[in-house]
Design a protein around this nucleic acid. Structure first.
Lengths: 140, 140
DNA sequence: ATGGGGCTTCCCATGATGGGAGGGTCAATA
DNA sequence: TATTGACCCTCCCATCATGGGAAGCCCCAT
């Protein structure tokens, strides 16, 4: 099948398919006489694998490792699990960062009257003297 | 003061200070005879404002608006609050996305034996038949 | 005058993705 | 058969905020 059909079947855009090929995430597929890329069901399967891994937030680099493990019959599930756990930990860090931001900001929002007057604790905090602690706590 | 001192005083890297100037987030500062940038306490204050806003996850574009409001004596706190609330909502969306990823992945991790055998529910899920629902639920 | 540190500009890279131009190909239809 | 519309190709550029580094000027202290 051509790239359009492979895209529809896998849920990966044509742009992405070509990109994945260019960076070596997937091997270059065969070309027909007109130089069109030709995909097999197997290729579509791999693309869908990538799409699902991306949906879980894995980076391309991690997906490269996941696919290697996937194709490695001699793999151990411990290897896969370790990779996944690393990613869970990274997600935890990011979630914690964003949650801290959200909390700090939400607190400021709650303190803000939101009326026609210019007084605003949000701006006050952002413009705070160097010793202010509110925002720093969100970053630390 | 020169850019190095301004950087130390504001907590914004020299690279970033020049970048902020280049994109118009801050106005170009005066130059000394040797074409060195010269900063005032006021400039440092603005840079620290930007740093704090970035630490709360505001985009450059949003910070541009925040600074305009900051300098606008005729602003209403309602405007600032609205901007902040928009950002809180965006954070909520991202946190929810990542939390969903984390949960799906953590579930798979918990199902994985993590031993010397190759059987792995994590890979099984990623390679799932097109009707599989696990990952889709993390994206939806 | 020499060395080291600070400043300048300019270019490139990141990660994953989208947009678009410019051009070739194919299949169906008028 | 000629045209049209859908498909495909490659190549370049843009995003967003940031870092790295090169090449070169400037200043101060030794």
């Amino acid at each position: 099948m051509n790239i359009g059909e492979a895209s529809r079947a896998s849920g990966v855009t044509q742009k992405m398919i070509r990109y994945y090929e260019s960076i070596g995430l997937i091997a270059p597929v065969k070309r027909s006489a007109n130089s069109y890329r030709v995909y097999t069901e197997n290729d579509v399967h791999s693309l869908a694998f990538i799409r699902r891994a991306r949906a879980l937030g894995f980076s391309i680099e991690q997906i490269q490792k996941l696919m290697a493990l996937w194709h490695d019959k001699g793999r151990t599930s411990a290897e896969v699990k370790a990779l996944a756990q690393t990613h869970v930990a990274a997600l935890d860090v990011k979630i914690a960062e964003m949650t801290a931001m959200r909390q700090t900001l939400q607190h400021l929002v709650a303190c803000c009257q939101g009326n026609d007057r210019p007084d605003c604790p949000i701006l006050d905090d952002l413009a705070a003297a160097p010793d202010g602690k509110t925002v720093q706590s969100a970053t630390a």
